[in-house]
Each structure stands twice: as C-alpha cells, then as structure tokens.
Design a protein around this nucleic acid. Structure first.
Length: 246
DNA sequence: GCGACAG
DNA sequence: ATCTTGTCGC
C-alpha cells in the first residue's frame, strides 16, 4: 500500500475526501487484515449508538454518539459534533463519508463506551469492512453493526415473531443475521464489527431491543443527531440529567 | 449486459 | 440519508 494511503489509515485527523474508490478499496483490504472477531473479552457496562444526520444537498454533517448504561439501556451521556464531507454516498464505502465526523464525536467522549453500535454494517459487507468494522480497527474499539436494509449476501425471511432470526451468508460464510426485533416488522441486519464474535453481535442486539424496531443505542443516536441538526441540541459533550428519587 | 446497492 | 401528509395501530 502506498505510504500516502497508509497515512490515511492511521492519522488521527482523517481526511478521506480526496480518495478515489480504488484507493478506498485498497484501504478496506488493508484494514481487513486487522479484524478481530474473537468473543468479547470483558463484561459490558455501557454501550453507545453512533449516527449522523444531514440536510439534503448539504455537505454539513451532524455526528453524535449516545452512551447508554447496560443492561438498563438508559442514556447517560452524549457527544455531538458538526463537521463536513464531500465524499459521496457510495454503497460499500459508507465509512469514508461518515467516520471522520463520528471519530471527532468519539474523541470528545471523556470516557469511552464498552461497545459502539453503528447504523450500518460490520462484516456484513462485500469486503467484510463495513463502517462498524472500519471504525473498530481504526480505533481499537469494540463495535457492531445494525443496518435497516441488506447490503450483501443472501438470507431467508425470519419468522414473524420478535426474536426470530436467520443467517445472512456470502460466498459460503455467515456474515451476519436478519433479526426480527419486533412482531410483524421488517428485520434489521446485525453483524459484528470488531473485537466480538458473530454470536456476540446477535446476543447484544437482542438484549438492546426494546419496544421499537431499532435497538436502543442506534435509536437514541438517530434521535439525538436529528435534534442536533434542527437546533434543539448544541454541539458538545453532555451528561444526561436524571431525576433520582434518592 | 443485468440486477443489487448500508446511509 | 432527506423531503413530505395523512393515515393506521398500539
């Protein structure tokens, strides 16, 4: 890999805007060699959801992470950062468009979450390097993906009840799951990103599922960045206020 | 060439 | 993803 591209992979101040698709593909192939899909190594006490919101035809992106307590799933802190991107949305290369902004929000967190769940895929990707895996390898964080639509592979329709799931396979290997998180609602696509196993991602996704289709981490993240974009929340790091009865 | 195609 | 209005259901 050319040195110029290698710097793009390890530099804290990422700038993917000038990359061509062939160069981005090379970076994904390089990062793939550092993937770790072994089982979780420690207990989980916090899990964050990461997402971005943007206005149509605008290069401004509103990124954020919402950290939840686990297994209670109550928001305890959040980080919001306004940034910009010109890298277009290209299926299979979402990471190059969203990671720079999400990384800034992540760096703004004084205490990192035990797991980060992305609105997108982990290894459920043609080159096994979706945004969750890309971010994980880049930062060393434990990550997983939860997409609302299938990006790659084949799968059978899971049963209609909440909790039922099927394998998503590609080229003979299981790369994720189609999970029914709510009765009679379209399934979501779950896959490990980094530092967790396929089974870990499925277990965590189900434990993070409440009364909505989307798991609590990404559901809250989506809600927060949208409120940030419309001006209801300001950029910065905050700890959620709570009314305690003792 | 044709169909698929995260956000 | 975002743009949009109403509508059906818990």
């Amino acid at each position: 890999m050319p040195d110029s591209l290698n710097r793009m992979v390890i530099t804290p101040e990422l700038n993917y805007d000038q990359l061509t698709i062939p160069e981005a593909t090379l970076i994904q192939q390089q990062l793939r060699g550092h993937l770790n899909l072994e089982p979780l190594q420690k207990g989980i006490q916090t899990i964050a959801g990461a997402d971005i919101s943007l206005a149509l035809y605008s290069e401004t992106v509103y990124a954020g992470l919402v950290v939840l307590s686990y297994p209670e799933l109550q928001p305890i802190s959040y980080s919001l950062v306004k940034s910009s991107t010109i890298f277009p949305y290209v299926p299979g290369y979402l990471a190059f468009r969203e990671i720079p902004a999400i990384l800034k929000a992540y760096e703004q967190l004084p205490v990192k979450p035990d797991v980060v769940m992305f609105d997108g895929n982990g290894i459920l990707h043609g080159r096994r390097m979706g945004i969750a895996s890309h971010f994980g390898v880049l930062t060393g964080a434990v990550t997983m993906g939860c997409a609302k639509k299938k990006l790659a592979g084949q799968y059978g329709e899971p049963g209609a009840s909440k909790g039922e799931y099927t394998h998503v396979t590609d080229k003979g290997e299981v790369i994720g799951y189609a999970v029914r998180t709510k009765d009679h609602v379209k399934p979501v696509f779950i896959s490990p990103g980094h530092k967790m196993s396929l089974e870990d991602s499925l277990t965590l996704a189900l434990k993070c599922t409440g009364k909505h289709r989307l798991p609590e981490p990404t559901r809250h993240a989506h809600e927060y960045v949208n409120r940030f974009r419309i001006g209801a929340l300001a950029e910065g790091y905050y700890e959620v206020e709570r009314w305690r009865l003792f």
